[in-house]
Write a protein that binds this DNA or RNA. Structure first.
Lengths: 211, 211
DNA sequence: GAGCATACCGGGAAAAACCCCGGTATAAGC
DNA sequence: GCTTATACCGGGGTTTTTCCCGGTATGCTC
């Protein structure tokens, strides 16, 4: 019985290449390819049978990794979800694991290890790369005590990562200057910084925004 | 006559996948794979014949894209060098083109386009993706007139990428506040920004500082 | 020694950022 | 009905940043 696999990655070249690579492994079949979460959900919906396992990139346009993970988890609880990312920073890993991924693989994994990981996840439901295993508990703990950032705050954060003044940001967000002042205050506290520059840098480090 | 291709990319999974994909194209052969520039140079040196074309990732450890490009350009002037990156920001593209690349491809290129691009570059020595073509001249112009940044300015820039006030930076650099004000002024002009936040972001984009 | 680049410095003023005080309205959950 | 959370707002203040004016000293090149 072949293991049915779906892949989502916004880089077409990587998507097609990886698809070819996985197809070359005995007993692994690619049943869907997508360049974002939305397309993935649509393609899976049109399949006669859902895949056994989904490889998901974290950073995608339209519907990113965590959102796609959550949607898939809800629609097809049986599918094993595997995050596949270049980034090994804590925040990214946490967001995917919290959303319901059962494993987190890095893109610099060796093809042979990927094959091994896919088979292991398909059978047991989880995979432990020796190195990452150790840190999982710490990550979960950290995520529980870490502050949450609301949508509106994220919006402010994106706008703050620019040459715009708070006044201009207030106009763009259609709120008073006092209100963005409030966002600033609360984010300074949540990110543990004391200047806009520090806030921008911390937001970049936590990948709440990108360059 | 097969086109001999070498690839360098620090993500093993991508490297092997892409290698497989390219090998599947008629008349294209992979003669070397490497996870960084240094390894690539070593592997090429051991080949009976150098490759016709090299696909180079921009961001790699040990020896990055621009450095590898320059080294290859010097050692094997006949090889066509092609940058392959996820980033489409000006600074990255400029650094690769200046180092001697004849084309810059993005990783979200479609496999069929990649094949077309490889064949075209191998024959003509260049490739013009319609979209990017338009901007090349602007980029070259921009790079030629781009300002140089002195050591002291770089030092200031690093310190400015923090929660420190200019006053604190002045103390750390052992100069008066007025002096750091001067650095700020000149860097605002050189980076074409009008706030400290903008300066920090631009410095990160140009990789003058890192997170 | 003239011209130029680099590094450095003083003072003043306007704008932006930062930091408090206070408040309302709405929706979700017990 | 009460708490909790989110989104929003007004007015006051200080500090920092930003943007001007001006200047000196050193070293390098032609």
């Amino acid at each position: 019985m072949n293991i049915k696999i779906a892949i989502a990655d916004d880089h077409q070249l990587f998507l097609k290449s990886l698809s070819l690579l996985i197809s070359s492994f005995q007993g692994l079949t690619i049943v869907a390819e997508a360049v974002n979460g939305k397309e993935l959900l649509e393609k899976i919906a049109h399949l006669p049978m859902p895949p056994d396992l989904v490889l998901l990139d974290v950073n995608m346009p339209v519907m990113d990794g965590p959102k796609a993970t959550a949607a898939l988890q809800k629609a097809y609880p049986g599918i094993k979800l595997v995050a596949l990312s270049m980034k090994d920073n804590d925040a990214t890993i946490i967001s995917m694991l919290k959303a319901g991924c059962c494993a987190y693989l890095l893109k610099d994994i060796h093809p042979a290890d990927l094959e091994k990981a896919i088979r292991e996840i398909n059978e047991t439901g989880y995979y432990h790369n020796d190195a990452s295993n150790v840190n999982y508990r710490r990550l979960i703990l950290q995520s529980e005590q870490s502050e949450t950032i609301t949508e509106r705050e994220k919006e402010f954060l994106s706008l703050a990562c620019s040459d715009l003044t708070y006044k201009a940001i207030a106009q763009k967000m259609n709120v008073s200057e006092r209100t963005v002042d409030g966002y600033r205050e609360i984010l300074f506290h949540k990110l543990n910084v004391q200047s806009r520059t520090g806030m921008v840098l911390e937001a970049l480090r936590r990948q709440l925004v990108s360059l």
